[in-house]
Design a protein around this nucleic acid. Structure first.
Lengths: 154, 154
DNA sequence: TTTGCAACTGTTACAGTTTAACAATAAAGA
DNA sequence: TCTTTATTGTTAAACTGTAACAGTTGCAAA
């Protein structure tokens, strides 16, 4: 999927948000955590834990999984449940936001839609059922514009 | 979550749909497949593959995983990705429908919302991005009415 | 009825993913 | 400095899912 965003800027702003958030929560943005963060933020592509570990110079699994947990709980990354993978979160300003992801299963790039797109109706329905939402996953798998174009040319 | 549905009727109609669908596709609703189907349809609760296997008298994993794959591809059950679990699908009439699930993480009961609730906006946005959807997961985790009531009484 | 094909099962072994547990270390405040 | 808490290092194991291949069954055409 085309980099609609200027990715360097994207990454920088996420890093800033991460540092700010850690300071606020009184927790440390340690080497491992920063490392995993940077690896995930190389792109907007979904990465599996295994792929991330490959870039963590032979560190043991718990190192990576702990960092992933930390980043996820801090709202700095999303866990893409339908792929069992991770991707940077673009809305670090709003820790309560709900990720709505368009996931290309060809190039694994992910576009995160703005909050509220589909949530409102869902939240309304939940209320009707007396249901208290806690965590929501909205994931649409498919093929992105660029990959569709490549398909046609192939 | 309270059984809003008359579950016996629910189960019966699902079984009928399953048999009909298998006949239509020219595939067999074999013992294993039927077994897994019945286990999942004991309730509207999410069940993990491991839980299902426990009820399959010591049969080897591939037996269960194959049946799960079969039922999923036939649209007879949903894979709940955020729990890595399975639940019966209520809309077996429409094989293209998209599951929108309210999942109680306390009792694991699942309510499946009617199609179209949140999909339309999502689909619209996808189109804006030139994205071709293929498979969508909408899963809201939280606490259901009954479990909330129990919380208050506890 | 026999034959042949495709669907399905049985079984073993393995690969991939995640966590438990606990000891060791580092940072931050009293 | 001392104490407390957060974080890391390490091992081993549990959990989850699949590859591969031989054997069996059901069905349809000859």
């Amino acid at each position: 999927m085309s980099n609609i965003c200027d990715h360097n800027r994207c990454k920088k702003s996420a890093r800033k948000a991460a540092e700010h958030l850690c300071k606020e929560l009184g927790v440390r943005f340690t080497t491992h955590r920063r490392r995993v963060f940077e690896i995930i933020w190389q792109s907007h592509k979904a990465m599996s834990a295994a792929q991330i570990m490959q870039q963590m110079d032979n560190s043991q699994p718990p190192i990576t999984y702990r960092a992933l947990d930390f980043l996820k709980n801090a709202g700095l990354i999303h866990h893409v449940t339908s792929l069992n993978a991770y991707v940077g979160c673009l809305h670090t300003q709003n820790p309560n936001h709900i990720g709505q992801l368009l996931i290309c299963t060809s190039c694994y790039n992910i576009v995160e839609l703005e909050p509220k797109t589909a949530i409102e109706k869902l939240t309304f329905e939940a209320k009707q059922h007396g249901f208290r939402p806690n965590q929501t996953h909205i994931e649409m798998l498919g093929t992105c514009k660029d990959c569709l174009k490549n398909e046609r040319n192939a």
